[in-house]
Nucleic acid binder design. Structure first.
Lengths: 117, 117
DNA sequence: ATTACATATCAGTACTTGCTGATATGTTTT
DNA sequence: AAAACATATCAGCAAGTACTGATATGTAAT
């Protein structure tokens, strides 16, 4: 029970790595092979600072690895199973978790709109 | 590219469902079969209000389903693949994402400790 | 109908989290 | 060595997000 809670904490932390649209765009871009930071910037449309921050976060968690090549830094998914996890999520979205789209629990600015009205 | 970003948003939202220790404890408790709210409260150690809020969130996203039985409400995982996803996360934690534990990006109150010192 | 029990909802608070711009570090080229 | 390029770091702001306690709803027993 106590051990279970600790695992839950850790697992939650792992999932937090996947629970941001920017980080997911980055991971998804990396599925086609290694990319430099600026290539990621270009492909995702995010800015350099933002991408760099997220990459640092992803690398710190060992979800991506990097390799220096001249003045470029190549980033890559750390393991195929990361792609598997992303695919499984897509499957769930398609077949099961269809409510996600409309669900507004813990959702941006609903309160604001209501109070303004 | 635009479609990709939209999927990223949705997937991020799905992962947010899994990125909370309380929700994970609940989901993990439900892996052994359907449970009432108070059984979940008992097994997880969370309080009733909290569990109810999270269940409402999980149900809204179609990650769990419920069925009324007298004055009890039985909750259950909506699909086996949810358990699969949890297992895959465990695998990643064990084999790949070992940095998650120590990673302190976007981490509670690091700033506070530093500024106090 | 009233009480007891099971669950749901809500507002408020404290905290977490991501983005941006400015700046720093590091690496090649001239 | 200086300039140009690639990436990293940091502070501060603007959100988002979760927990709690109080209260409401709903169901079954007396």
């Amino acid at each position: 029970m106590t051990t279970c809670a600790q695992t839950a904490d850790l697992k939650a932390k792992l999932f937090r790595g996947f629970s941001d649209p920017s980080r997911l765009s980055i991971l998804s871009a990396l599925r086609n092979g290694p990319l430099t930071v600026s290539e990621i910037v270009h492909q995702t449309g995010l800015n350099q600072s933002n991408v760099s921050n997220h990459l640092s976060c992803l690398r710190c968690c060992d979800l991506v690895v990097r390799e220096q090549q001249g003045r470029f830094m190549y980033y890559e998914l750390a393991d195929v199973r990361i792609a598997t996890l992303l695919d499984l999520a897509d499957e769930l979205l398609a077949d099961v978790a269809q409510g996600v789209r409309q669900c507004s629990h813990y959702e941006p600015s609903t309160k604001l709109l209501i109070s303004v009205q």
